[in-house]
Design a protein around this nucleic acid. Structure first.
Lengths: 232, 232
DNA sequence: AAGTGGTCTAGACCACGTC
DNA sequence: ACGTGGTCTAGACCACTTT
C-alpha cells in the first residue's frame, strides 16, 4: 500500500508529467496556476514553481506571465548531447587512445574558413591530426587556430597532446557553435580513415569564440559507423 | 558609471562565469561554498544556489555534497538540439511543405528492427514517406509502428498527414532515444532524394517508448547538404 | 562527526503581458 | 488594471560524502 505524497519538486514534476501523458491535460490546455497547484499538492508555491520550471526547460510546458502555463502543442523535443573530449570518449569505451599529428603549418586559410573566423587576410595556424582507438582510425581532426587570439600557441607542442586538450586547458572560451552533417569519403578521408571512397562519414564542425574573437574552427571527420547517441 | 550589483541569480551566474573565464577560478579549483558566496554577493544562499545549479546544469561546475563545488576540469560541453516536427522545420525556413506517402503495409520487420522494438515475431506496420520543401526532396522517412501499442492506427489515414504528426497527436510517449549518423546514398536513396549514389547523407534514427512498450522506430534520411546546428 | 549542497516553507515584491 | 509567473529572503531541516 503506497500513498503518493508530494513533498518534493520531483514528485510534483512526475505527477504533472503523468497527467500530461494520460491526457488529463492535453497539448494546448492551460493548467491550473501555481497557487492552485500548491493547494492541490499541499506544498508551497516555490516547490510547484521549481517543478514547472523544470518541465518548461524540458519543453513539456510553455509558460507566460499572466497568460499562464499551457501544455506544449508542438513537443519540440530537446535532445541534450554531451560533447566529450575525444580522449575520454575513446577511453570511456574501453579502448586504448592514441594521437598523432599529421601536419602543422601557418598559412592563409581558404575563403570559407576566413569568413567563418573573421580573420580577414591574416594567416592562421593549420593543424591536422588523427585520433586512434586500439590502433584503428577513429576520427580525423582538421583545425584552424587564430594565433592572434591565442598567445603562446607558437610554442605549444602538439605532437604529444591534441590541440583540443591544449586549448581547453589554456584558452577559456565564451561561446561557439556546433554543426552535425554528413559527407562522402574522398581520397584523403579514405586513406586516413581506412575506408573506401564514397563511404558516408559523420562530421562535426565546431567554432569557438572568446567574446567577439574567433579562437578556432575544427572539423572532426569520424570513421565509418560512428553514431552519436542520446536519450530523450 | 555603473556599479555591478548582485540582486538576482542571473547576475551571480554571470559573475561566476566571468571569474571562470578570467581564470580567477581555474578548472579543478574548488570555489567558495554557498554561504560564503552569499555573504560576498550580499544575497541569500538560495539565490547563490539557483545560480550555481544553473551553471552545473550547463556543465561548467561540478557539485557534490560535502566535497563542495569545483570548476569542471573537462568542460564536457552539452549541446541542446531542438528536434522539431519536420513540417515546422520546413515552414520555419520559409519553404512550402509537402508530404507524400510512398508505401504502407504490414509485415514482419527485419531482425534488427524487431530487436530494437522487442516485437518478437509480430508483424509491424511499415510506412515510407517523403517530406518536400518547395517541391524538392527534403527527407525520406522510413517507419515501423507496433499496432499493438497503438490502437486505432489501422484506421488512420497517412496519405494526408504524416505518421509523425498523427502519433504526436494521438500517442503520448514517455521516453525514447535518438541517434545521429551518416550513410552513403544507395540506389533507393539516390532516387528518392534526387542525388547521386555515394553522396553522404545525414541520418537520424529515433525510437519512442510508452513505458516498456516500443511504439515506433523511424529513420529520417536527409537530402544532401542537411546540417543540424546549435549554439554552445 | 562535520561540512556541504539539496530542498522546503511562508511571505513578499516585482515584471510582464493580456485584458 | 490585474492576474500570472519570476524571483528574493531568512530560516530550517535533511542527505550525502568525506574526513
Amino acid at each position: 500500500m503506497s500513498e503518493t505524497v508530494f513533498n518534493n519538486w520531483q514528485s510534483i514534476h512526475d505527477e504533472v508529467l503523468r497527467r500530461i501523458h494520460v491526457r488529463q491535460w492535453k497539448p494546448g490546455d492551460q493548467i491550473p496556476n501555481e497557487a492552485d497547484l500548491a493547494r492541490q499538492f499541499c506544498c508551497s508555491r516555490s516547490t510547484v514553481n521549481r517543478a514547472l520550471q523544470s518541465l518548461a526547460d524540458a519543453g513539456f510546458l510553455e509558460r507566460r506571465r499572466k497568460a499562464g502555463t499551457r501544455v506544449a502543442t508542438h513537443p519540440v523535443r530537446k535532445a541534450t548531447l554531451d560533447i566529450p573530449v575525444i580522449r575520454n570518449e575513446i577511453a570511456g569505451r574501453g579502448h586504448e587512445y592514441a594521437y598523432n599529428l599529421l601536419d602543422r603549418f601557418e598559412q592563409k586559410p581558404p575563403p570559407d574558413i576566413a569568413a567563418r573566423m573573421k580573420s580577414g587576410d591574416r594567416p592562421l595556424l593549420h593543424l591536422r591530426a588523427m585520433h586512434m582507438a586500439d590502433g584503428r582510425p577513429y576520427v580525423m581532426e582538421t583545425r584552424w587556430v587564430d594565433p592572434g587570439a591565442v598567445p603562446g600557441i607558437e610554442n605549444a607542442d602538439f605532437s604529444g597532446v591534441s590541440a583540443n586538450e591544449w586549448l581547453v586547458e589554456n584558452v577559456p572560451f565564451t561561446g561557439g557553435d556546433i554543426a552535425f552533417s554528413a559527407m562522402a569519403a574522398g581520397e584523403s578521408e579514405a586513406g586516413h580513415l581506412d575506408c573506401e571512397t564514397g563511404t558516408g562519414l559523420f562530421v562535426i564542425e565546431r567554432s569557438t569564440w572568446k567574446g567577439e574573437a574567433a579562437i578556432t574552427f575544427v572539423r572532426l571527420t569520424f570513421a565509418p559507423g560512428y553514431r552519436m547517441h542520446t536519450l530523450i
